[in-house]
Design a protein around this nucleic acid. Sequence first.
DNA 1: ATTAGCACTCGATGGTCTTGAGCGCTAGAT
DNA 2: ATCTAGCGCTCAAGACCATCGAGTGCTAAT
Lengths: 344, 344
Amino acid sequence: MDELKERQKQVLQIIVNTYVKTVNPVGSRVIAKHYHDELSPATIRNEMHGLEERDYIAQPHISAGRVPTDKGYRYYVDHLMPEPKVAPHVAALVAREYRDRIDNLETLIERTSQILSSLSEQAGLVVFPTFEELVLKHVEITSLGGRQLLVVWISDKGWVQSQVIDLEETIPAGELARISRFLNQELAGMVLEQIQPYLAAQLKQAQDSLHTLCRMAQTIVCESFPKMKPRRMAIEGSRYVLDQPEFQDWEKSRRLFKVLETKDKLSNLVCGDSERAGVQVQIGIEHHCEEIWDCSVVAAQYQINQRTVGAVGVLGPRRMQYERVVSLVDYVSRRFSEVLEQWV
Amino acid sequence: MDELKERQKQVLQIIVNTYVKTVNPVGSRVIAKHYHDELSPATIRNEMHGLEERDYIAQPHISAGRVPTDKGYRYYVDHLMPEPKVAPHVAALVAREYRDRIDNLETLIERTSQILSSLSEQAGLVVFPTFEELVLKHVEITSLGGRQLLVVWISDKGWVQSQVIDLEETIPAGELARISRFLNQELAGMVLEQIQPYLAAQLKQAQDSLHTLCRMAQTIVCESFPKMKPRRMAIEGSRYVLDQPEFQDWEKSRRLFKVLETKDKLSNLVCGDSERAGVQVQIGIEHHCEEIWDCSVVAAQYQINQRTVGAVGVLGPRRMQYERVVSLVDYVSRRFSEVLEQWV
DNA sequence: ATTAGCACTCGATGGTCTTGAGCGCTAGAT
DNA sequence: ATCTAGCGCTCAAGACCATCGAGTGCTAAT
């Protein structure tokens, strides 16, 4: 039932391609031209009628051409679109952006978002990694003199988080060294998010000689442990979306920018089903964010050590070149994973 | 000559106030009402004529009311505006935002930008501090095993920058300790930006026993030294500007967002004359950025230890409540300086 | 199954008219 | 010398209307 006849598929494909290019509703005559006058507009109209009945296309108004619906785009992406393959020059451009070593995670992420944005000519999105899932490699404690300590947490993939803390009392250097040794023995190799519960449990059953040591260690860890922040994200190139003709409408652009600034909503959207791997395309209202029902989101998760820690994506008008964008997001998410992994 | 008569000043003030509130060109009748029928519209029209001749106000078209020009706003800000005083509830809101300790510079800056934006209902801008002017407190070098080192640079104000580096060869722990001691002895207390030239000079004249040590130290410093990044900035709340009626025009909003995304241009604009202290108001084309000739920028620099290291500001349509915005920017820049200073 | 032909719909474009806000000017009032 | 009432002028915005053209749906013929 949901199966389309061969020619209907062709017509739908032509409509999507043409509409994406021209922004104008596509009429029967234009489609007929694709058949080099082997078919008349009237025939095409019959096919279109079928497509419209089954909700793949719609008319903005009664005497206009046809425009793909969400369902139409979905069918296009699932069945009609050519296999997304990243263009060589795009790959080259991405590679070049990643070539020179970037020294800082924030910058790396911003850069990635810019790459996505400039190559797709849409808004680029990168959700910061949750480092809670990373494995602790080393914790370094240094006295800054007085009652100040510098504590540096180093995870397996070069993710470094440092924190200066104030203590109630000074700790002798010897004690500090012991604490440091103790912490590294106990905690190295653990997944970050398990550390605090584990240490709390340890402390409970330690009523013996290690007691004071444990308390101090606990204090230091509590004060300096990297906080689980609300999921940050980097958004670049939102201006590209504003350039699209459909956003000449003031109300639409206001709604869009409202969503872009409440990043929590957006990050859920980009992260999507954490189950499914690969690129996910959410067309129009499929993403359930009403304010931007006329936008699509193409996103993919990225990994460190096979663990999914975040996602990258592109947001643009529903009328987008899905093949190009999907291939780009796919490629960038892979390269970004690699860069993160080698990033020690 | 540039002196306005008392009543002209009043009229200008009424025009600015009314226009800022209503967005509509202000006619003589509306102004006359402010005088409770003690003056007729015709009289006001005469005064307006004078103001228009001297370019303080203008007519969008011949049968419309008057609108302040750049010069008009400038006169208002310099002479007519009440002394900017931060409203108590605004101060309270700002204080509350800064109350809980923020553990990370990026977040602190983002937060500050959000404060500026939400309380001014315009776009908030914060230029990241240049930490090159900060003083080195301590440099910490730790072996991560193998040929990897973790180097942490700590400045006087708790500004920490860490970097993992790869070496050509392993360095014995003893050597490393010597290098560490050497670097801290030599460099502690220096302004960051002088460190690299100084070390290079030292290396040149060291042909003695310290030679190898020096070379290694040099390598470590070069690889790990915090790079002078292009000036980053945090922009929050650009959507507020889009909400302003003057930005219903698609072209205008496109131009604005183009500027907002090329942050280098903007950061120059916000930093302004590095000479002058206090809040700076740049009205319309005064900031020499043509794309946003109809926007004003209100900015103030912030300090760490009396050293100017960055700037905060607000960007919005020229038609803005200058008094409110100036007082806000002033207040936030001071509080932000304080927070940064206490931030160890 | 296809197509030519025709009637129909409706947005877009552009012209005309009316309305109302607001101005400038001048002559007379204070 | 200053203010004001009154009048005529200008122009933007809105309402109304006619026209045009792209595109459709339907039907009858191929």
